[in-house]
C-alpha cells in the first residue's frame, strides 16, 4: 500500500527530526570535539568538585528535543482536526454541477 504525504507531513517530519537530531546528535558531536566532559553533565573529581562543564548547555539540547516533540504533538493535533481523505472525497461528491 502506498501512502501519500502532503507538504504538512513532510514539514512535520523534517522539522521534528531536524530539531531532535540537532539536539541529540549534532550538538553531541560538538560536545565530543570540545573535549571533556563528553557527556552532557559536569565532570567532578573524587571530592565532588566540578572540574569541567559541558560546552553546550544541556538545557539548550534538551530544549531542542522537546521542541521537536512539540512539533509532532502539533502535527498530531492537526491530523485530528483536519478532514480525512474519505471526508474530503465525500465533501467533493456533494458538490453538484449547474
Amino acid at each position: 500500500m502506498q501512502q501519500h504525504t502532503t507538504v504538512i507531513d513532510k514539514a512535520a517530519m523534517a522539522l521534528s527530526g531536524g530539531l531532535m537530531l540537532l539536539g541529540v546528535v549534532v550538538l553531541g558531536i560538538v560536545e565530543i570535539l570540545a573535549g571533556q566532559p563528553y557527556g552532557a553533565a559536569p565532570l567532578t573529581n573524587d571530592a565532588g568538585e566540578v572540574i569541567a562543564t559541558p560546552m553546550v548547555d544541556p538545557t539548550l539540547r534538551t530544549g531542542l528535543v522537546l521542541a521537536g516533540l512539540l512539533v509532532l504533538a502539533l502535527y498530531g493535533a492537526y491530523r485530528l482536526v483536519a478532514p480525512t481523505k474519505d471526508e474530503a472525497a465525500t465533501a467533493q461528491q456533494e458538490i453538484t454541477a449547474d
Binding site: 553531541g28 557527556g39 553533565a41 534538551t62 522537546l66 516533540l69 504533538a73
Partner: peptide, 22 residues
C-alpha cells in the same frame, strides 16, 4: 501520548546525562 509526557518529565527531571543525552 501521556506516556511521552511522563517520560519527557522524567528525562528532563532525572537529568542523568553523564553519558550523553541518550
Amino acid at each position: 501520548v501521556f506516556g511521552v509526557f511522563f517520560m519527557a518529565l522524567f528525562w528532563i527531571g532525572n537529568a542523568e546525562f553523564g553519558h550523553g543525552l541518550v
